[in-house]
Simulated scan of single mutants.
Amino acid sequence: MSRTSIILVALCLVASCSAVDESDAVITKYGSQINLDGSYSYEYGTSNNIQAQEAGVGGSYAAGSVQYTAPDGQPIQLQYTADENGYQPRGDHLPTPPPIPVYILRALEYIESHPFTRVQLKK
């Protein structure tokens, strides 16, 4: 076995040993409430530092948050709402779209300032 192969195997062993085994995680906190008017709330926490909570009205609205540590060690904090406008997550870890190019903004401005008159074709 070459020296490079030995180093590669050693690095793989170190990486696999440093992985955290979360299969033994247990629930450390739990609460749930369901009301007659359809509103609800729940919260839970686990021994591996996952925390979550949500409140809402069944089928109409929900708002909540989740906190945990990603496998790469990054702390994740996600807040969200879900309503008639859809699911809206917020968090620093979420990707953001690139800025709209200036030429597109100018084109949209031009279109807005020059309204189009719809032409009805005869049948």
Rank of each mutant, 00 (worst) to 15 (best):
H114E: 09
S65I: 02
A55K: 12
L105V: 06
T69R: 05
A15V: 13
Q53L: 07
A25C: 03
Y80V: 08
T4M: 15
S60W: 08
G31F: 13
D21C: 01
Q77W: 06
E54D: 06
D21F: 05
V26A: 09
A63N: 12
V119L: 11
H93R: 05
N49E: 09
G64S: 05
Y61G: 12
H114A: 07
H114N: 15
G45F: 00
A19S: 13
I111E: 11
D83E: 05
Q77K: 11
R118M: 10
V57K: 09
E54H: 01
R3M: 08
D92N: 10
L105R: 13
I6C: 10
T81C: 06
T69Y: 05
T69A: 05
S23C: 01
S60A: 12
D72C: 08
V26P: 02
L108S: 08
V66D: 00
V102S: 12
A10M: 15
Y61D: 10
G45C: 05
K122A: 15
E112V: 04
Y103H: 14
L105I: 04
E43D: 05
S18D: 11
I104K: 10
T28K: 00
Q67D: 10
Y110A: 11
V119Q: 13
L108H: 10
Q77L: 13
A62W: 04
R90A: 14
V102G: 07
S16L: 15
A25N: 04
S23H: 04
Q67F: 04
S113P: 01
L78H: 00
L11R: 02
Q33Y: 02
Y42I: 05
I50Y: 02
I27E: 11
A10R: 08
Q53T: 10
G31K: 11
V14P: 06
P98D: 10
P101I: 04
I6H: 09
G86I: 00
R3K: 15
N35E: 10
V66E: 00
A62R: 07
A82C: 09
D24H: 14
T4E: 15
G59E: 07
P75V: 02
G38H: 02
H114Q: 06
T4R: 15
F116V: 15
A55D: 08
S5A: 15
R118Q: 14
S5H: 14
C17N: 12
D92T: 11
N35H: 05
P97S: 07
E84T: 09
S47V: 02
P89A: 00
Q74H: 05
T96M: 09
S39I: 03
H114R: 09
A62Q: 08
S41W: 06
E22Y: 13
V26Y: 11
Y68A: 00
V66F: 12
P97Q: 04
A52Y: 06
N48I: 09
S5G: 15
L121H: 08
L36Y: 10
D21H: 02
Q33N: 14
E109I: 06
P115Q: 09
Q33F: 01
L36H: 12
